[in-house]
Amino acid sequence: MNETDLRWRLRQLPREMEPARDLWPDIAAAATRASAKRRWPWMHSLAMAASIALAFGLAWRIAPAPVMPMTTAAQPDEEARVLEREATAMTREYQAALREFDGAPVPGSLEPGLRVLDDSARQIRAAIAVNPDSPALLQQLRKTYSRRLALTQRALTS
């Protein structure tokens, strides 16, 4: 078959064809199924973040408080550095857990609460920098991070 024959057959084809039935209901159903399938990958991220938060909380509850004897005048500075390092490590773990939710849509009604918790965490870290030997500030930072993660998880499941 040469090119001329192909062109002739192509011209003989009908210009328009009507489908045998209405296709829009099937398209809408397929789009709904596709959007439902896209929600499940977030569940994996939520499970990962919940596991990290649970491991962090268990480690905090189970780990005994370090007992450091006061033998020299340098001991308070050493304890302050330990608390600062612990706050830094906690912040890194928290940020890693939040990265699991990057790109996830957050309802507008929860954004003010998330901002308040983020501001509180910044203020607590600033207070730890000024008063690094305060276990109470470290405890408050831990609570703030836990609340922020819990609110983020709730935002993604609702």
Rank of each mutant, 00 (worst) to 15 (best):
A129E: 04
A29R: 13
T144E: 00
Q12I: 10
A121E: 05
L149N: 03
P107S: 02
L110T: 07
R154D: 04
T4P: 06
A129C: 00
A65F: 09
E93H: 11
R125Y: 03
R85I: 04
A20Y: 13
R81G: 02
I62G: 08
R38C: 09
R92F: 06
A150R: 09
A87G: 06
I128F: 02
P66T: 01
P14L: 13
P135G: 08
T72I: 06
R92G: 11
L117W: 00
A34H: 08
R115E: 11
E79K: 12
D119H: 11
A30V: 11
Q139D: 13
P69S: 12
V67E: 15
R142N: 11
V116N: 00
A73N: 07
P41V: 14
R142F: 07
S146L: 13
Y94T: 07
A34S: 14
T88W: 07
A36I: 04
T91A: 02
V67Y: 12
P25E: 09
L46H: 15
E111F: 01
L151H: 04
L110H: 06
R21G: 14
D118Q: 03
M90N: 05
L83E: 00
V130N: 02
Q95D: 05
E16Y: 05
A59H: 14
T72S: 15
A31Q: 12
F101N: 01
G108M: 04
A59V: 09
A47Y: 15
A155Q: 01
W40V: 09
L13S: 14
L58W: 11
E78H: 08
R7Q: 11
E84K: 01
P105G: 04
A53V: 08
R11C: 15
L6Y: 11
A36W: 08
H44K: 15
E111W: 02
Q75R: 09
P132E: 01
M1W: 13
P76S: 10
L141Q: 01
R147H: 03
R154Q: 12
M70F: 11
A136L: 10
G113T: 11
P132V: 00
R92V: 10
Q153Y: 10
A55S: 15
W60V: 13
A36K: 05
L54W: 14
A20D: 15
R9L: 13
L98D: 03
V130G: 01
L98I: 03
K37R: 13
L23V: 12
G103F: 03
L138I: 03
A126D: 08
R85P: 00
P112S: 08
S120W: 02
S120E: 14
A89W: 02
S51H: 08
P76R: 04
G108P: 01
L23W: 12
D5Q: 10
L10S: 06
K143H: 02
M68E: 12
S45H: 09
P14S: 08
A74Q: 13
R147Q: 08
K37A: 12
A126H: 00
R154L: 11
L117M: 00
P66V: 00
E86W: 04
E79W: 09
A53C: 15
